[in-house]
Design a protein around this nucleic acid. Structure first.
Lengths: 199, 199
DNA sequence: CGACTTTTTGACCGCATGCACAAAAGGCCG
DNA sequence: CGGCCTTTTGTGCATGCGGTCAAAAAGTCG
């Protein structure tokens, strides 16, 4: 099908990545189509043709964000001791401004941002977010189960409960960090949690 | 000053409370001035006259939300054992839909919602949110300090670090709950944290 | 009663938004 | 080379938004 036509002149993946940065730093509502058009250096019509409407575009960016995050999470947890890796997962958002970009400084977890802004009134967004949450818990719980077996992590709670707690903490940390955060205090809190998980 | 004029026909405090529910459930961007006009049953001009523009109105609602929350928090922590009170503070957002209202179901912590939606680009909002965070930590740390002295709470971490961790958890829990939450799992996670704080 | 102040009312405005469309252009395949 | 399919380009449009304003109304006080 599709005898092929005029080839796309821009790189769709790259455009999505740039849009991701914009949406990440400003949020859905505060990013106008005009902003996107200027940041991606393409015409209004091309954007709609390639990605559908603004909402679909945003959701695609959120999906890409999660895919990337999930890949990193799996990699970080699959080998070696689990607690240091988890400490890193939590410490990351505590150290602000590392993903600085020219279009502004993305802050917080984009899944969390999407949760706050779109989830209440958008079923599709809710599904994406809920799936991300479930996957996070699943991945982390798998790591914790192994760590419990290795005697690295306390068995006072189930791996699922511990993973759920870690999800809350990551999301809360990312969110709170948007309002400014004393890095040292945040890291102290992270350490308190990691220590509490230790066997 | 002010020889008095035509008296206001609506209850300003009550209007602010209703607006709080609307803003809480829909967020800032998704609540139009028209929505407010209809929900509060007053005319556009009256609204602007009484509260200034939409943003000021929203910030006033956020301030009211925090005042109410802070009062409850202080009350809950000032007497009796601290851990059960903290457990309740965390369990509250885990049990969804308790603040149901006719205008929709407010979800999550409004401070958290404001953080995600406005803080990146609004200095005044950032200040309100940051102050709320600081107050939360201060209040909770005070309770924890007493509880550590009483031997109720572990001294493995400073009360400040523990309070900071609790802030992250509450915020994360409130946020995640917007996407739907299995109450039992959430409570298990809360219990895991509370147990970890126990001496 | 009448001057004065404030609120109410409802129409109104400019603007930015998301989106549609028609014409032109570009590359593939027969 | 010529038909075909798709993307590009840029204009155009309706809608809904936040916000303003002037006149009418409702109290207060001298």
């Amino acid at each position: 099908m599709a005898r092929t036509g005029r080839p796309r002149e821009f790189d769709k993946d790259q455009a999505l990545e740039r849009a991701l940065l914009l949406f990440w730093s400003r949020g859905f509502g505060a990013t106008s189509v005009q902003d996107l058009v200027e940041a991606l250096a393409l015409e209004r019509g091309s954007l709609y043709g390639a990605f559908g409407d603004k909402r679909s575009f945003y959701l695609a960016a959120v999906r890409l964000y999660w895919e990337t995050y999930e890949r990193q999470l799996v990699t970080a947890l699959e080998a070696g001791p689990v607690l240091p890796a988890l400490r890193e997962v939590l410490a990351n958002p505590a150290r602000a401004q590392e993903y600085a970009s020219d279009v502004g400084v993305p802050q917080g977890c984009m899944i969390g941002n999407a949760t706050a802004e779109l989830v209440p009134q958008d079923a599709e967004a809710r599904e994406i977010v809920a799936r991300a949450h479930a996957r996070f818990i699943q991945i982390v719980a798998t790591g914790l189960r192994r760590a419990q077996a290795d005697g690295e992590v306390s068995r006072d709670a189930t791996p699922e409960a511990q993973a759920q707690l870690l999800l809350f903490t990551v999301q809360g940390l990312s969110l709170v960090s948007r309002a400014g955060l004393d890095t040292a205090s945040a890291l102290a809190a992270v350490d308190a949690l990691i220590d509490a998980l230790r066997a």
